[in-house]
Amino acid sequence: MDGKLRELLDIPENDFDVVVRISREEDIAIARQMAKQLAQELGFSLADVTKVATAVSELARNIYRYAQPGKIMIRKRPEESGGPAIQVVAADRGPGIESVERVLTKGYTTHERSLGIGLSGIRRLMDFCEIASEVGTGTVVRVEKRRRKF
């Protein structure tokens, strides 16, 4: 198994401020709400709060649709490591992604009720986005958004 993926799947929940387990449709809204709250606490602009909340909504829906149960973990990055930022890890031990490159293509989807825009959109909304996945093992998406100075 891919070492990086294993490492990411084993990130301790205690390192995070919020952990939301995703197994019901309602959990998507809960994860989105939590992300919004943490981004607000960090003093993000309204635009960036909305981007973070939207990205988390997409991540949670992906887990709910393709790989439940999984979890969304959110933390405020410590100040000392380069300015305030919000980090989100979406982890599941679901079926995994066959081709990460393909799911990042705008318009690609395996679901009939989807724009195929989720992951490619997340990448555009956030400052950092990393996907580790292996068929049969699971998927971890790690994203980060830094607070911008105005």
């Binding site: 309204l46 635009a47 709060v49 909305t50 981007k51 939207t54 705008k106 724009l115 825009i117 490619s120 959109g121 555009r124 909304l125």
Partner: peptide
């Protein structure tokens, strides 16, 4: 709302 418009446009929706 402006933040929603921004987010939708950035995602390409």
């Amino acid at each position: 709302q402006p933040p929603v418009a921004l987010t939708l446009a950035q995602m390409g929706i």
